[in-house]
Write a protein that binds this DNA or RNA. Structure first.
Lengths: 253, 253
DNA sequence: TAAGATTTGTTCGTATGTATC
DNA sequence: GGATACATACGAACAAATCTT
């Protein structure tokens, strides 16, 4: 019946995908913003001439991408939804799940981006923002007494970077720095990249975050950049040692 | 207006979402790789105790994220699917669709990342790879005669950067450079950032891509970095002028 | 507090489409 | 061509959530 073409080789797109695309176009054409209401199920069934199940599958596709949200009840329905940075990070992490990203790969970018970020923020932060960073930097004042504490300290240290990124005004730079911090957090937890205890590096790392806050407060961009660059180099060194130890651990078993 | 405000009410997760999460866990636990087969619909219905419709919605969720692919027919079913870079770029672009990313934002990162990429690739490319880049750099040897040609030249020029990124061995750096090139391509087409013709900048841009290929061939990392840095600065300048003109165009109307 | 209205959520039965043998 | 094993799609019925009165 429906065989208009002699080129069947392209992967056939299922009806829910086609409907999802049409809804996307519909939203873009009307330039609908976050919160705008979409037609309800009944209207879409009539509009697209498909069954309820198909409409629902289309909505799940859009929901999975963070483009719509759905609520039940009167006044409910489907609405245009802004993609959150959390969801964007998760979706991007799925990609790198298949890419064998190494600690070195991440740090090549961190070393380029984070010193620049620090420099642009010098003298631009409010007292509250600086205090928030100070709190994260000084939350632990003693070297870890257990592997669990070591892991927690590591995660808070990454939160410091993620929080700093939050204060930037370049959305792309903010996102990338936060994404890398999250990816390293996942590695820390999942691959246990925290066990080899190194007190000296921990002390220096903590100290440099404190000094960085001081430089930011003083508005010294050059100093902020320098501190962050050195901090990145030490952090990379530490994580690579840990990764090497983890590898040896795997091979020993 | 509405909103009981009594409790933070985290949204209930629908059954399809819960099933999708369980399938994800199921795959991760077993460390299944791309191409591995998932249970068929009937088995999942039994496994999770839900109806066919719910299972299908769950599969659409995973499909939308690029995590599974589905085929009909005997031997068909659902399979673990590697997230492609294309899909990852699209999903990430959805996020920045809501973020008002400016040309300056993108170039702040391009100026940091692309010179570094060029430096790491100096002397590492095969003859075929260098020829491919050379072809992209020299495809047009005359300034554009029409707006359409100007647009095409601009897109090919961005393909050059995307292609160069492809040859890198840091998946994160590769992805970011390619993502920015794609984003700029979309801007070029959608916002028509190509019309203001500037012959001098075009000639210099073309020339620097050719010189870059030479430096890469010669294995001169420092020179490759320098050329790319200057190229980025000129490109930013050009795109910002165009954006300013587009803005004036909008305001004039 | 309770009932009713509105909208999505879920199930089931059936039929159709598609790819392999 | 026919049998088989899958996903795809439809429609009717009922369940659950949530807002209004």
């Amino acid at each position: 019946m429906n065989r208009p073409e002699g080129k069947p080789t392209q992967p056939r797109r299922s009806r829910p995908v086609l409907v999802a695309d049409q809804i996307k176009d519909w939203v873009v054409e009307r330039d609908l913003k976050s919160g705008a209401r979409l037609p309800n199920e009944t209207e879409m069934i009539a509009q697209f001439g498909v069954s309820k199940g198909t409409v629902r599958e289309a909505m799940r596709i859009l929901e999975a991408q963070g483009l719509v949200v759905t609520r039940t009840g009167p006044g409910g329905g489907s609405f245009v939804g802004e993609v959150t940075s959390e969801r964007a990070k998760s979706l991007l992490a799925n990609y790198f799940y298949f890419q064998e990203l190494t600690v070195s790969d991440i740090y090549q970018l961190r070393k380029l981006l984070e010193p620049e970020l620090a420099a642009t923020l010098a003298g631009k932060l409010s007292a509250e923002q600086l205090d928030r960073l100070q709190d994260l930097a000084t939350r632990y004042d003693e070297p870890a007494a257990s592997p669990e504490e070591e892991r927690d300290q590591h995660i808070v240290s990454l939160r410091f970077h993620s929080q700093l990124a939050q204060y930037g005004d370049n959305p792309l730079l903010t996102f990338m720095v936060a994404f890398m911090a999250r990816f390293l957090t996942d590695l820390t937890v999942y691959r246990r990249l925290y066990e080899p205890h190194n007190e000296e590096l921990w002390i220096k790392g903590r100290q440099s975050q404190i000094e960085l806050v001081q430089a930011l407060r003083a508005g010294d961009a050059g100093e902020a950049r320098r501190i962050m660059r050195e901090h990145m180099e030490r952090a990379e060194d530490m994580m690579q040692r840990q990764e090497a130890k983890v590898r040896r651990g795997f091979m020993a078993v």
